[in-house]
Simulated assay, not measured.
Amino acid sequence: MLTEVTANRYITPLREGGSLPGLVEADGGRGTFGTYVMKFTGAGQGRKTLVAEVICGTLARRLGLRVPRLVGIRLDPVLGLGEPDSEVQDLLKSSGGLNLGMEYLPGAIGFDSLAYRVDPFEAGRVVWFDALVGNVDRSWRNPNLLVWRGDLWLIDHGATMIWHHNWPAAGAAAARPYDASDHALAPFGPDIATAAAELAPRVTEELLTEVVADVPDEWLTGEAGFGSADEVRRAYVSALLPRAASVHERITLGAPAEHPRPPAPGWFTSGASSPNASARKGEAA
C-alpha cells in the first residue's frame, strides 16, 4: 500500500494542471516530512484519475522509468479555511480524507524537445509503456515530462486506461492500437522492438498484482459491477496482462503532424523569485 502522510500546510495551487493540484507540506513521521504535489479526490475527474496515477506510476517505477514517488496524503478540510481563492477553498473542503501526493522535484523544468535530447532506447521504453496503459496525454501539445537533474521524469498519468470508465468494454482493450505519431518522444526514433523485448516479459501477473495492491480500498470500493475492491484490482490485471505481450505490434509511428514549438509555460518564463513561482517551476502534475 502507499505510504501515508498527513498534510499540515497548503502552500499554493499549481494552476497549469487541469485538475488544479496543489503544493503541500506533509508529515508521516519517521523522516517522511516533505513537499508534495497533491491531487484531490474532490477534483472534477474523480477518484479514477487517482487510481490511474497509482497503477501507472507504480508500474512505471517497477519497470525502471523515472516517476516521482507517490504517497497517500490525509487532508483535513480545515486547511482550506485560510485559502483566499474560493475555487481552491471548495476543492480542499470537498477532499477531506485520503488524497494522492507526488514527490515535489525542486528546480525541475518542463521537457522541450529542442533543448533536451532523448536516445532511441529511452524514448522506446517510454512510448512502449504509454502504449501499454493507453496514455493519450504525452503529445507534443502537453508532454507531461520533466527534466530534473539531467534526467527525464514521467508525470501525470490520470488520462490513461480510459477503458476503466466503461468496464464492460475493458476486455477489448488488449487489442486496441496505439498511434504514437504525435507522441512527445516520436522525433527521437523510439526503439520499440528493444523496449518490448526488455519490458514485456517483466509485466507478469505477479508484478501487476503487486502494483494494483497499492491502490487504496477506499478509491475502489463501490465500483459499479464489482463486489469488492479486490475484484476491481483483478479486473485491472486482467486488462493489462494480455496487452503487454503484444502491444508493440500495434504501435504506429507515422509522420508527426506539423506543429509549432509549444510556448514555455508562464511559470518558466516569468523569472520571478517568489516562493509561488519557484513552486510552479517544479510542478509535477
Rank of each mutant, 00 (worst) to 15 (best):
D179F: 01
G171R: 04
R233V: 03
R149M: 13
L253E: 02
E206R: 15
V54D: 14
I251R: 05
E122Y: 07
P177K: 05
S86I: 14
G17D: 06
P256V: 00
A264H: 15
E16A: 06
P143N: 09
G72E: 14
A174V: 11
W148K: 13
L132I: 00
K39A: 00
L146V: 08
L241D: 03
A186W: 05
P21A: 13
L92T: 01
Q45L: 07
D182F: 01
M38S: 01
L199G: 11
M1F: 12
S95M: 10
L70F: 03
E16T: 03
T160Q: 09
P68H: 09
A193R: 09
V211I: 08
V88K: 02
E53C: 07
G18K: 11
R30G: 14
D182R: 08
V37I: 07
T269K: 11
R47P: 05
S274N: 08
E16R: 09
P68D: 13
H165F: 07
G266W: 15
V88H: 07
A7R: 04
R74C: 10
F188P: 03
T41F: 06
V54A: 12
G107V: 10
H165W: 09
A159G: 07
E283R: 14
A196M: 02
P262R: 14
L185R: 00
A277E: 13
L75C: 14
G266L: 15
G271A: 01
K39F: 01
T194V: 07
R30N: 15
E53V: 01
A26C: 06
F129M: 07
L59K: 06
A174F: 11
P265C: 02
D137F: 08
A7T: 04
A213P: 05
L14N: 00
A264L: 15
L91A: 03
